[in-house]
Write a protein that binds this DNA or RNA. Structure first.
Lengths: 141, 141
DNA sequence: TTATTTATGCAACAATATTGCATAATCAAG
DNA sequence: CTTGATTATGCAATATTGTTGCATAAATAA
């Protein structure tokens, strides 16, 4: 569990103001071992926070490089905290994501790098996302 | 452009009834070089078809292996037609997808296979999705 | 041509996400 | 520590995407 200091430091280093909502959202995402939807974050930070503020906070965090969206084939956006080195200008989250078909959690496999592919002519890639689906560690008998 | 025969044959071979909506939806998806959202399909097949019927048709097609969802980080589900060999039981669409940051189209790069990765212990993958983002062929100067 | 099965369309609804605006909170300067 | 400028918050209202139940219409098989 990250200390309150890390939360504050992360906000400061990304030039964001300290507010209770931001600290709570960041804490929740850092505490989770899998990506969370807006609704799931809402549940964890308590009902006294407005949903609109939450969505705006998520957008701010995403724009500043604190969190990233996780790829999926569903219609629900899920977020996970970025590695410490990410910024508004550059993301370093080139890790594979794993979606469990049993518990439906999406994990960041930080230790598994995304392998490169060779693209056809005139296609130029800047970011890459890799999503695996199957049964996760917790759900394997 | 696929002939009407191919549409009918595809429906028959997947044990689906021939209806105007199904033929129209399948035609639209086969004609498109990039993945389409429900709304985009709706626009292309004309306003006289109910949105609910469209969504049910898409679900039916997906379950039968005629079309597949395309991975993305957005909250909008996009569909593309599957290769001919796909069925309800097994998908053979292990190709890379490419999302253009300029025109926002998502292309199926059928000729680019998804490279394998080595997973941590007790993670078992069944399906894989790979999404690249950058500038596509049409938008490159 | 008829009977059975299944797709369609309507109405109503649920969930996710966004915009404008007034108020409240944060932070920096004195 | 207080003040002032800036920015985040919360409310109201709304947009978009997707779903469920049910009666009717259409498609296939006999």
């Amino acid at each position: 569990m990250p200390s309150p200091d890390r939360i504050s430091q992360t906000l400061t280093s990304h030039e964001l103001r300290q507010t209770p909502v931001r600290r709570a959202v960041l804490q929740v995402l850092l505490d989770s071992s899998y990506a969370l939807s807006g609704h799931e974050i809402e549940e964890r930070i308590g009902a006294d926070t407005d949903r609109i503020t939450l969505y705006r906070t998520l957008k701010t965090f995403e724009d500043s490089g604190l969190i990233h969206r996780v790829v999926d084939t569903s219609d629900i956006v899920r977020y996970a905290s970025c590695s410490i080195e990410c910024s508004a200008h550059e993301h370093f989250d080139n890790h594979v994501h794993f979606k469990c078909t049993n518990c439906h959690h999406i994990y960041c496999l930080n230790q598994v790098a995304i392998p490169a592919v060779t693209l056809p002519a005139k296609f130029e890639a800047k970011t890459r996302d890799y999503l695996l689906a199957g049964v996760c560690r917790e759900c394997t008998p």
